[in-house]
Structures are given as C-alpha cells and as structure tokens.
Design a protein around this nucleic acid. Structure first.
Lengths: 254, 254
DNA sequence: ACCACATTGGTACGGCGTTCCATTCGGTTC
DNA sequence: GAACCGAATGGAACGCCGTACCAATGTGGT
C-alpha cells in the first residue's frame, strides 16, 4: 500500500537546461522582468522547483544564461565580422549603409561599418527583449566575470583597434561606445514600452507625440534644454538617431 | 478593561519622510542594494510598517527619493554652474583642472570645464553610493518621469548647448555624455567593490592588480583585445581615465 | 533480478513588500 | 473640563518570492 498518494507519472520529454533557458526568455518577453519566476517555470513544465534546480544553480544564473543566449545570437560569431542578423523584422524604412552592399572585399573603413552593425544588432536585440537593458547595464556595472558583457566589450574593442585608434585610447573609446550603446538602446526600448501603453493600435505619429510630450510636460523654468530637445526628437528615426551617437563617438577616435 | 495588551507608548520623536529617506540612504550605503528593507526600517525606528507607509507610498518611491536626495546634492543647483561639491574625500592625488582656480569671470571654454565638473560630481556620488549606479541607469532606461534622471540630462545638456554644439547634435551629444558618465561611473564603483573584497588593508597596487587580473584571466583566444587593455588599465588613475572619456566625447562635439 | 544513481516533483521555510486595522494622542470644539 | 476628530502609529496577517530538502521514480548497467 502506498504510504503516500500516487505521484504523477514521470515526464517523457526530458527537461533540458536549454529548454529551461528558452522558456525563461519567453517568460521574460511576455511578462516582463518580473515575469521570470520559478513558480511560473514549474507551472509551465508541470513539475516542481527541484527539477529546475537540477539544471540551473539559481535564478541569477538562469537570468544570466537567458541574457547570454539572446545576446550571443545578436553578436558577430568569432573573430571575424560574422552575420550579426540585424533588421529583418521591419521593412527597414531607413536603409542606412549599415548593411554592406556585398560581402566582397571590405573597403578601407570596414571597421567603422562593422561597429555600426554590431551596435545596431545590440540595439535591435534590446528592442525585442527590453529586459536585456537592465540586465546588461547591471552586469556591466557589476563586472560579472563569466557573463556576456566581456563579449560585447571585446566585439566593439577589437574593431576600435582595427580602426587605427591609438593604443592609449583603446579603453576610453571602447568604454564610451559600449556604455552609449547599451544605455541608448535601453532608453529606446523604454520609450517603445511607454508608447505601447497607448494601446496596440496607435500609429507611429501618436506614439512619438506621446513620448516627446512626456518630456515637454516638464517645468519650463527648470528644464529648458530638455524641452527644446523634445521637439527635435519627435520626428527622428530611432535607429538613425542611435547610429548618429555611435558615429559621434567614432568621429572623436580618429 | 483593555481588550488587548497595552501598546508600546507612542514615539516622541516624530517620524518624517526626510528621516525615513535619510535612514534608507544609510541602509543602502552600509548593507548594499539589498539592504533596504521595510523590515530593517521598522527595526531601525522601532515601529511597524504602517507608520512608514504613511510617509512613503512604496519601496520604489522610497528608492527613488533616496536616489534623488543623494544625486541632488551632487548636481549643480539651479541654472548657474553651482558648487557641485566634488572631491573632498581624497587628497585629490591627480588635481586636474576640473576645479577652476577661482570663481571669477569664467573663461571662454567654461562650459567644457563645467561639464567635467558635473561629470566628476556624479562620478564621486556613485563611487560613494554604489547602489546609485543600478538605480540611475535603470531609471534612465525606464524613463521615469518624476525622477532625478531628467535633472542630470538637463544639467549636461544645457552645458552642451552653451558649448556651441549645433542644435541638430544636442540630443545625440547629451545622450552620449550622460550614458557614458553613468555607465563608466557605475563600472568604477563596481571595480572598487571588487577591490574591497580583497580586505580592508589591501593597498592600491594589489587592488588594481586584482581588478585587471580578472580581465586577464579570460581566454586568450577569444578575448585578445580585452586582455591587451587590461594591462594598460592597471596603472591609470580612475578619475583621469573617466574624464578622458568625457573629453573624448566632447571633442567630437566641436 | 537487482541495484545505483541521475532526475523528478512535492512540501516546507524564511523573508520580502504590502494591506489592514485597532490604537493612540495632540488639537479643536462646545 | 469633557467630548471628539483625524493624523499618525505599530502590530498582525497575507500572498508571493527564491530556495532547501527529500521521498519517489525510472533507466541503464551488472
């Protein structure tokens, strides 16, 4: 006679670290930063916390792994430039030269183009997964060792090197670039969420109005600059504006 | 007859929003980001959560208020340059020109100096209160309306304006500066905490060694750039390096 | 047939933010 | 002075979280 009630039968589809990470990304995407919960995961897999803890040490590691998985896909693979699959979700209404015409012999200023491509890849990854912003800036600040942030630093830095920047400026230039990229991309993602709050059917005009209006609602006496800038933000393309910042920093390196 | 046991007598020293914020900052400074807890606060004030919730809406507001309080003290007051009390904790072993000789007539390039001063003030505030880094980058990304981050943006942007930057570049330049300042300052604060882990009696040499060694432990094949940079990071002054980044971005604006 | 062990899933614990409410007491009103 | 009101207080409880622990399970080797 069973001392306890019969347990539910053991699952047939194996629980994998990969499947758990995949589910974690999905939860983060759909339910936001606070949506990733061991309880939500146990419910998703119809299991108990122990089964998940067998594959993952703790929540921090799971979050880092989710970040790693998403960022790795957006980063060039290996030492060469790599694909860095950017911009296939929108019709790319502003087809700036980030995507080279042909993968033939790279021109002289290839590193600059590559930096723009890497930056845009990160921009779009953060746009698609807003929780990345907190995670990446936080990890970068926390200097996590085994995390993905050194990969980002390396991907940018190597191309700064190739750009011909004097060695003494390597760290400074790369720091400026990475901090700008992650920060600005995060701000863009936050803006998008602010705009999404208007409702799913708001067009881009309304959305941009709403975003820039939040800045214009500030006290005119205390925030003249921010209000002045709000107007010019209204009718600029997000990616264009973002890349302008990258170019600005790159210009100072040469 | 009392239906319940006699309550503890009512406190004589009034509980104020200011006193609560002050205690919150203290808890964050001494116990880290996770140290701010309503339970810790109730114990500190020998009271219950309800008394604190009377003065503060929730934990988020309390955190924002603590951030606001600390950052406001580090930011110039009002539209003029203001004091921005920077560098009085260390003997300022690298007395760069950030602090002007005299508060007399500002020279032609005053805006650049002012930006350096504001940046250094934020740098030191974040160094003294490491929890600010997460809070500020997070709030900036989250675009919180009533927070202190617009003040930072405004303080920098107004001086970018005064620098003679063309209007079309105002937003880009200010974004680049602010994201770099907060990101780099956060990274510096994290480095300091990594160094503090060595023990309270480690000198600066050991500490810098340890920090740069964390970078050098990376895989030589995958991280040639980061490792190359680690060496040159070792013997640079933190503030100097930080301000070099500010100057780099400023150079691109002119 | 057995067993060792990787894997699973249930239960429990302590701590968190937050809510609710009985209680207190300084000030106002008659 | 007595009665009263409402701002302020502090205690207890709720629901959720991450996590530790462990009995139950089934599979592959012997």
């Amino acid at each position: 006679m069973a001392t306890r009630a019969r347990r539910s039968p053991r699952r047939t589809d194996a629980l994998t670290r990969e499947r758990i990470i995949e589910a974690a990304v999905e939860l983060l995407d759909t339910a936001g930063e606070g949506g990733l919960t061991f309880r939500a995961l146990t419910e998703r897999f119809a299991t108990g916390p122990g089964a998940i803890y067998w594959h993952v040490a703790n929540k921090g590691e799971l979050l880092a792994a989710a970040t790693e998985a998403v960022v790795a896909a957006a980063l060039p693979t290996g030492p060469e430039a790599g694909p860095a699959t950017a911009s296939q979700k929108t019709p790319q209404k502003a087809p700036q030269k980030a995507s080279q015409k042909a993968p033939e012999k790279a021109p002289e200023n290839a590193p600059q183009e590559q930096i723009r491509t890497v930056a845009l890849g990160l921009f779009e990854a953060i746009e698609a997964h807003p929780w990345l912003a907190t995670q990446l800036t936080g990890q970068l600040a926390r200097n996590a060792r085994q995390s993905v942030t050194p990969r980002i630093f390396e991907a940018i830095g190597r191309r700064v090197q190739a750009l011909g920047v004097p060695e003494s400026a390597w760290f400074t230039a790369t720091s400026a670039l990475v901090h700008y990229i992650l920060g600005a991309a995060g701000q863009n993602a936050a803006n998008n969420e602010t705009g999404r709050a208007l409702g799913p059917d708001a067009d881009r005009g309304q959305y941009l109005d709403a975003v820039s209006r939040t800045w214009e609602e500030l006290d005119p006496g205390e925030y003249p600059f921010t209000r002045a800038v709000a107007a010019q933000v209204r009718d600029h393309d997000d990616r264009e504006q973002f890349l302008a910042g990258v170019d600005l920093i790159l210009r100072a390196c040469l």
